Amino acid sequence: MTQRTAIFPPNRHALYEAHGYSAAVRSGDLLFVSGQVGSRADGTPEPDFQAQVKLAFTNLAAVLGAAGCTFEDVLDVTTFHTDPQKQFETIMPVKQQLFGEKPYPTWTAVGVTWLAGFDFEIKVIARMPATT
């Protein structure tokens, strides 16, 4: 049986504890990151959509960093959108800035009707970098 190790970024433990899940789980050389949203320090949604998207990516970077990963280690991306047609224009420049070089990770975008008050969520799978 492969062992699972929970990963948490600094200063975000209360959010995960309140809802009973790990920010990320390492299993072997893979890192499975829970969906990250544009939550402010108190856990509420950032009301400005562009700022919410940037904050979701910032929160994702914190989780990846806590595991010793970067965006270059990301293999698979799943994003959730409450209004994809209207939101892609805002999301794509942020995504391209972080995943700008080929080969790109795989990406699945899903339109949803509810994200607990948020309008964008991103989850990823990454490969842990080899240690020397």
Rank of each mutant, 00 (worst) to 15 (best):
T82K: 02
H13N: 11
P93I: 05
L31I: 05
P129A: 10
I91F: 08
G38R: 07
A6R: 10
N11H: 13
G111L: 08
A18T: 07
H19P: 00
M1Q: 12
A41H: 07
L115V: 13
C69L: 04
G20M: 00
A62W: 05
A6E: 11
L30W: 01
Q50W: 00
F118V: 05
G68F: 01
V112I: 14
T90E: 09
K123S: 15
Q96R: 08
W114F: 15
H81R: 03
G117T: 09
A126T: 08
P93F: 01
P9I: 01
G20F: 00
F8Y: 12
T70P: 04
S39H: 14
G20I: 02
R40M: 14
V63E: 04
G117A: 12
H19C: 09
D76Y: 03
G68V: 06
P47K: 03
L98N: 03
F120K: 04
D76S: 06
T70Q: 02
A109Q: 13
F57T: 06
Q97D: 11
P45D: 13
P129E: 08
V77D: 02
H81Q: 12
A23C: 06
T82S: 12
S22D: 15
K86S: 11
Q50T: 15
F32Y: 14
P105V: 10
T113S: 15
H19R: 11
V110M: 14
T108I: 14
I122W: 06
Y16G: 11
V124W: 03
V112T: 15
M1C: 06
A61N: 07
V33W: 02
V112W: 13
V110A: 05
F88D: 12
D42R: 03
T79Y: 04
D29F: 10
T78W: 09
A56V: 10
H81K: 06
F120I: 08
E46Y: 08
A116N: 13
T113G: 15
V94T: 02
A66R: 03
Q36H: 02
F57P: 04
F57A: 02
Q97K: 08
Q87S: 11
L60Q: 08
I125P: 01
Y104P: 00
I91N: 01
L115F: 13
F71M: 01
D76F: 07
V110Q: 15
N59V: 07
T44K: 09
C69F: 02
S22F: 09
F8W: 07
T131D: 13
L115G: 12
V33H: 01
Y104L: 15
P105M: 06
N59A: 02
L98Y: 07
V53Q: 00
T132M: 04
Q96V: 10
V25T: 14
M1L: 10
L60T: 06
F71W: 00
Q96K: 09
F80C: 11
A51R: 14
R40S: 13
T58F: 07
F120Y: 14
I125H: 04
R26C: 05
Y16V: 02
V53R: 00
E101A: 12
E89M: 11
F80Y: 15
